[in-house]
Nucleic acid binder design. Structure first.
Lengths: 208, 208
DNA sequence: ACGGTTTTTTAACCATTTCTGACAGTTTAT
DNA sequence: ATAAACTGTCAGAAATGGTTAAAAAACCGT
């Protein structure tokens, strides 16, 4: 999600969380940054009645910063096993004050995030369900690098996709079936593989 | 939108744009940052078929940064008359390298933006039209400060609201009428005033 | 391998929101 | 002053996506 900052791993407390463990919640005092060392996490916000929006996924190398607030403003939950290094907020602040490079790296990472969030605003506000899912699949596919048949992380459930895309699980399921019928993807168990990235890209660019 | 950085106004070229002038486009090389001195701007992304999503509005004091990309990734258009100071990207980079304070200020501003964008993801992905409009009105109202009867900037058209909220002008129009019937807001010409912020907040928190 | 639980898929139906088109009110141009 | 253009409002038809319900598939512990 953000840029790698290897210097962080050296100090700070290492912690491990198991599947589904919520290690950061919206009302928790924001005292430490989390640097993901292994595994993944889903980041989300919820409404009082249970509606959930996934903000993004964090992977190895990403940093979940304690934003300039007294409390975190989203929650984070471990996917698979998760290893993080906790960096105390004051420690990070000191680093930013003394090392311009570190601060610039954080700024760069924050701005990368802004760019991707702007794209997601457009997606959630103006794209159809079909376009959103195609975008999502392509985005996930590129994460894994080319030549690997474009798999989607099997730890991401239909409910996760729905909460990421602002849809319901039923709609996601329906569209995946449609994509399968159209030979755009293949499905075996939970695993999804992209068969025809070009036609998926065409869906994103100009809807039918 | 972002935090004020008064040091920027001192140098850099001052430019003025008139109503509706698009001074920044998605495919333009990102060579300068814009520091808003007076007036306002709408920031948006568009799809090839014309669908538009407003990313946000920029007001006096806000900085529109050239993100770490070769091109801007959204467009910006003047509302009313707009005065900006253009700060060349290399100049800003140098400032960030030499002054840790300046870099920290930019980082802080970027992170503030991230927080508000996360909230907007939740809004666009999971809230109803009614909740979105109530949220928007309250957000606009607080901009102006309390005690002023909570006006909404009349330069923001129905189409702007729709493109900000991921709705159509008709839906916005209908909901404004509904809010008016329910005595939540008053309307005279284009001007909107919030009459009952508490009940609007109730709509945001728990829908009916 | 078995039984129970959870997740995913499918289908029928429904609702919110969009789309289309018409009209009224305002502003701008002639 | 009148016409033209734009913006906002309203109403009905259409559609996308949500809701509900149930079956099928996958998963898990024993």
């Amino acid at each position: 999600m953000s840029l790698v900052q290897p210097s962080l791993s050296s100090d700070g407390m290492k912690r491990t969380f198991s599947e589904r463990q919520e290690f950061m919640t919206e009302d928790m005092p924001a005292s430490t940054h989390f640097h993901v060392v292994a595994g993944g996490a889903r980041l989300f916000k919820s409404l009082p009645d249970g509606r959930r929006q996934i903000i993004g996924f964090a992977h190895k190398g990403d940093v979940l910063p304690a934003y300039p607030c007294t409390r975190y403003h989203y929650s984070a939950e471990a996917m698979r096993n998760l290893q993080v290094v906790c960096v105390p907020a004051p420690h990070m602040s000191r680093l930013h004050e003394t090392s311009p490079g570190a601060c610039a790296a954080s700024l760069n990472s924050a701005r990368q995030l802004l760019v991707s969030l702007h794209n997601r605003l457009l997606m959630l506000g103006r794209q159809t369900a079909r376009e959103r899912l195609a975008t999502f699949l392509l985005g996930q596919g590129t994460r894994m690098g080319p030549g690997e048949l474009w798999p989607v992380d099997p730890a991401i459930s239909r409910a996760d996709m729905a909460d990421f895309l602002g849809l319901t699980t039923e709609t996601v399921s329906r569209l995946l079936s449609a994509f399968h019928r159209e030979q755009l993807i293949s499905r075996e168990r939970r695993a999804i593989h992209i068969l025809d990235p070009d036609r998926l890209r065409a869906i994103v660019a100009h809807p039918e």
